[in-house]
Structure formats: C-alpha cells, structure tokens
Simulated scan of single mutants.
Amino acid sequence: MIPLKHYIDDFLHLFFPHNCMACHTDIIHAGDIVCAECISRLPQTGFLLHSHNPVEKIFYGRMHIEKAGSAFYFTKGSVIQNIIIQLKYKGNMEAGRFLGRLLGRQLAASKRFDDVDVIVPMPLNEKKLFKRGYNQSAVIADGIASVWDKPIIADAVERVLFTETQTHKTRIDRWQTMENVFAVIQPELLAGKHVLLVDDIVTTGATFEACGQCILAIPNTKLSLATVACTI
C-alpha cells in the first residue's frame, strides 16, 4: 500500500508547487530543495581528500596554509552555479545551508581537517551585508557546523573596506584590490587555534590571501581553507 503521506504530499503539490532550486523541476520530494537528479550531477573534485591538490597549489609561495580544498567544480550554467546564485542574489539562505552541509560532510569524511579548532566565514563588508541582509559565507558555515562538530567564530575578523565585484578582474587587479581590506579586531578569539577559513568559491585566491595573512599574523595560529566550489 502507498502510505497516506504520499497522497497528502501529492495533493498539496497541486496547490503549492515545489520545485528544485537548481533545475526547477517539480519532480522532487517534499522538504527537499534540490532534486535527486541534480544532486547526482554535482561535479565533486575529491580535493578535500588529498594533499597537494590544485586548490592548495594556488597558495604555494604566497601564503602558508595547512590544508585546503573545494568540494565541487564551478562552471557556467552548472547546478552548482544555479544554487550559488540562489544563495547570493535570490535571498535563499537555505541554499547556503544546503551547500554547507554538503561541504561539511566532505570535510568530516576526509579526516584531514580533524584538527581544525574553529570555522571562520569569510567576512562581508557592512555595505554588502546591509544590501544582501546576510553573509553568504556565514550561512555556509552554519550548514557545515550542523553536520561537523566545529564551533564558528564570525566576529574576530572584519572586512573594513568595500570592494566591487572581482568577477571580471585580472589576477593582478584582484590582488591589488584586496590590499588592506581585512582586519583582525579580536585576535584573542583565534590565538593559538587552527582556523578553517570558509567561502563559497575560490578563483585566484586573492581574497583568501588577503584575509588569511591577517589571521596568520596572530601568534601561534594555523590556517586551512575550504570552499564549496572552485573555478580550477
């Protein structure tokens, strides 16, 4: 027999359509935000499992990090791009928590990041925070912490300068733009800890380098990096 709940879900779906946030199909279980087909198409990198992966190599000779990695590849028109757009530009915070849970499960499964003490979301400037209403990296961090037992410290580092979008800038322009953008305002919260700095996407690594160098200036602090996606 088909459970009564299935009949109820189908009935409600007629009047309150429920669609996948990535492909917009209505073939999706009640309570899910991404359909099974889209989840199966997520392009996993496997980077979090291995040292000397392409994300870690971005920072060779630029900044000392313990470990780094991204969960998925980012490409235009992809499922990952659609979900990140929902998070950053459509006000869909549940999209961020969903991505965070995916990243958190990979971090936990890798075991390489077990010695991380705290999660620090990439800070967002007050101007952008006011416009968006939330920090997308902090939402992702919440998702990570819901499946991986690590505390979040979101108020130790600030983004003190406003910067325009980095999307169409060259590598050198991105690096120059990010100079003096971040400041540590409560170093005692991170001193002596292994910090995992989290963001949605890594491209050239300029933002991570600018923020990471501030964190590494705190005595006896170690730094690792993780993102939902990478453009490598």
Score class of each variant (00 low, 15 high):
S51E: 15
S137K: 08
A109Q: 15
F98Y: 13
E56D: 11
F11D: 05
I33N: 02
R159C: 05
Q186D: 11
L225H: 02
Q44H: 02
I28S: 07
V202Y: 04
I8H: 04
F113G: 05
L48Q: 00
M122C: 09
K76V: 04
K5T: 15
D10P: 03
H168F: 12
A36G: 09
I140M: 06
V198P: 04
N19A: 14
A22S: 15
I172D: 14
V116G: 01
P3S: 09
F16L: 14
R97E: 11
I218Q: 08
L99D: 08
S224H: 01
V147C: 15
T227R: 04
A191V: 07
T231I: 13
G61L: 10
I152M: 12
D155W: 09
R174K: 15
F182N: 02
S78T: 01
G91P: 12
P187I: 03
E188A: 07
H24N: 15
A36M: 14
Q44V: 05
V139H: 01
V139K: 11
H18A: 05
V228K: 00
R97N: 03
A108L: 07
F16R: 10
L49C: 06
F130V: 13
F11W: 13
A68V: 04
W175S: 13
H18V: 02
G96F: 10
A210T: 12
I84E: 04
S110N: 09
I2N: 13
T165R: 09
N125H: 15
L103F: 01
V157P: 02
L196S: 05
D155I: 08
H168I: 01
D155G: 02
F16G: 00
F47M: 09
K131M: 12
D115C: 00
L99M: 15
Q106R: 12
I172T: 15
F15A: 13
M1F: 02
T177R: 10
G205T: 12
I232Q: 10
K76N: 13
E66K: 09
I33V: 03
I33Y: 03
Y73P: 01
